[in-house]
Design a protein around this nucleic acid. Structure first.
Length: 201
DNA sequence: AAGAGGATGAACT
DNA sequence: GTTCATCCTCTTG
């Protein structure tokens, strides 16, 4: 079943990041439904997190999506190449977001292979925030869309999988060395033993 | 108006 | 381990 708005409106973005592990990210573009099980996430939290785009509650044309109501998508272009998909959480006005960093392909895998120009299935099909968006067909066109509307092309499902706390590995976030002391926070979460997470650096 | 740099990935040596 | 593709966003003047 589709996660309800209440799931996203909570204010503990770190807890929600862990809750998202084992949930299913689904997209539906051009009548092609693709599904991936979430196995890696990262939390970002304004105003105190220096790694967050909205650090200090900085409001710009880009970050305004993060201030929206929990349960919307935040997609932005990274390095001019990669479209990174985030889930906005907390009530409107609080800029929290969760970057989806890794999924395990489980539905319509052949469509994902096509989108990535892969001949056959390999672990790097969907490991990493820039690759999974390509496999699922997500781009900055979907910035700000709802994840809970009936007609939304992106949503997240709970299919009953439970990831035990002991099977969640927490570590520092990747690529945020500039964030000083916040770079050490263990806000990156992944499912232990999953082969579909991005490689640690 | 211009310039620097980024929540990365892939292809190199 | 290193390099580079590539463009939007934000800061500065």
């Amino acid at each position: 079943m589709k996660l309800p708005q209440s799931f996203y409106l909570r204010e503990d973005v770190v807890q929600i990041s862990k809750d998202l592990l084992g949930k299913y990210l689904v997209t539906n573009f051009e009548q092609k439904i693709t599904v991936g099980k979430i196995v890696e996430t990262e939390a970002y939290r304004a105003p105190d997190d220096k790694a967050c785009h909205a650090y200090g509650n900085k409001l710009t044309n880009r970050t305004k999506t993060m201030f929206g109501k929990g349960g919307t998508s935040y997609v932005y272009l990274c390095y001019g190449i990669h479209h990174l998909f985030n889930v906005v959480t907390a009530p409107k006005g609080i800029a929290h977001a969760i970057l989806i960093r890794g999924i395990e392909p489980v539905g319509n895998v052949n469509v994902m292979l096509q989108r990535r120009s892969f001949e056959k299935l390999k672990y790097n099909l969907t490991a990493g925030p820039g690759t999974l968006t390509k496999a699922l067909g997500i781009s900055t066109n979907q910035n700000g869309v709802s994840l809970t509307d009936k007609k939304s092309p992106i949503w997240i499902e709970d299919r009953g999988d439970v990831i035990l706390e002991k099977n969640i590995i927490a570590s520092p976030r990747v690529g945020v060395a500039y964030a000083e002391e916040c770079a050490l926070w263990d806000w990156r979460f992944r499912v232990k033993d999953s082969k579909w997470t991005s490689r640690a650096k």
